[in-house]
Amino acid sequence: MPTFFILLCCIFSAATVQAAQTCKTDSIPASTPNSQLVDNGDGTVTDSKTGLMWKQCLEGISGTLCENNTLKKFTWEEALQRSGIANADNGFAGYTDWRLPNIRELRSLVEEQCSNPAINLDRFPNTPSLDSWSGSLFAHPSYPDSAWIVNFSKGNSSIKGRETTFVVRLVRSDQ
């Protein structure tokens, strides 16, 4: 995996899509190694640790390296509605139960040995170091306009206003 990451970093920096990812492959155990994330070959990735199936590309982009079309950003309401769009017309990859991940599911995607972005770029190529929406609300009554996000630059979780626009990656429970 280290070689692959280096290769990917080269490709992406050449394409000026994003700054280079850095990974501490020798001093931090991988939390989402390729052996755990199964590439299903149909634009989906199955996490054998959690039992979740993820769309390989963020909403808006497509292709085997998620290199086609344009990345989209959504308000929290639009992010919620996005799953309905993905599930229409026979859905995606034959599944019609895609949904916005909850905060714990979204955090489970974070690769702890990498940053900028903190994700396995082999399985989730062309992922930018951006905030990504979850479908989880923030519980404290002083923040009735907030919901949870994961910042994939570092991998931390936080809350943001629902009118802010962020990227979206859809998930489904693989029963």
């Binding site: 308000t75 929290w76 309401e77 905060i103 609300l137 519980a139």
Partner: peptide, 29 residues
């Protein structure tokens, strides 16, 4: 994974409900 413990829904752009109701509720946590 554990679930989150969030058993209520919310509105857009603001407001949380006491039960699982709200905007695009089927897609909420």
């Amino acid at each position: 994974l554990n679930d989150t413990g969030i058993t209520w829904g919310g509105e857009y752009p603001t407001g949380n409900n006491s039960g699982c109701t709200g905007v695009a509720i089927d897609a909420q946590d």
